[in-house]
């Protein structure tokens, strides 16, 4: 049943991606000054939103673990963090490729770029930390605290372009810049399949965590026998 739902969701994401790509490449007008490269935005921005949504779910799951002590919250936190990290990597890499053309450089230590890189490193550190602790409850506790701490960087990334002067473009969705309504709707439309894809990947990852916990229980049984 669960498998069928996941396959169905993946199929929906694929159809939506195909439709959106048709819109992005064939129906939308070109941007006057940037040429074709501006289309990276349709992947770059939704990838960041999906990553942040994932990190927020990880924050909620971590708090719930500390309050209720259920290991399923820990499973959700680690799964959604790993998937969020993949989307954050998409955001960073596509941004660098865009910057190479528009700014003439691959990278600059600007507030937005630096805080996003720090965010990525923090969550990569979260995954590395988990490997360092063997005892499952202890690992879940330490990771939950770290995840809550790491989330402090997400609002900094989000508001950095408002709080400081940055090279990064001003937001077109909430003040500052502006965008053609057709481009705006294509941007929002591409968030949906990415979110669906992230949900499918998180569910697959959670299943692995369930199996890992089963392995840990069996190992203890095997040593005890």
């Amino acid at each position: 049943m669960r498998q069928r739902v996941l396959i169905g969701l993946a199929a929906i994401a694929a159809v939506l991606f195909a439709y959106n790509f048709h819109t992005i490449f064939l129906r939308l007008p070109d941007e006057a000054s940037q040429g074709a490269i501006y289309r990276i935005m349709y992947f770059h921005v939704p990838a960041a939103w999906v990553a942040f949504a994932g990190f927020f779910v990880a924050l909620v799951a971590s708090v719930l673990f500390l309050v209720r002590k259920g290991l399923r919250y820990d499973r959700l936190a680690v799964s959604v963090t790993e998937v969020g990290l993949a989307f954050a990597a998409v955001n960073l890499i596509t941004g660098m490729i865009w910057g190479r053309i528009i700014w003439g450089i691959w990278w600059t230590w600007d507030w937005r770029l630096t805080s996003m890189l720090v965010c990525w490193l923090l969550y990569a550190g979260y995954l590395m930390l988990r490997r360092a602790v063997d005892e499952p409850t202890q690992r879940a506790k330490v990771s939950a605290v770290f995840s809550i701490f790491a989330f402090a960087d997400v609002p900094i990334v989000f508001f950095s372009i408002k709080w400081w002067r940055t090279q990064h473009p001003q937001p077109v969705v909430w003040g500052g810049g502006s965008m053609d309504p057709a481009m705006m709707s294509a941007l929002f439309a591409n968030v949906i399949p990415m979110l669906v894809l992230a949900i499918v990947l998180t569910a697959l990852r959670m299943r692995q965590e369930e199996m890992r916990q089963e392995i840990e229980t069996l190992r203890r049984l095997s040593y005890a026998a």
């Binding site: 074709a36 990276i40 992947f43 490729i97 990947l201």
Partner: peptide
Amino acid sequence: MDERNFTFMFYGFAMAWLILLGYVV
């Protein structure tokens, strides 16, 4: 479609899919 910077746009989309595909693998 405007062909200016088309190559780098292709690199951008290719990298995005490669990262996601790599993660799935």
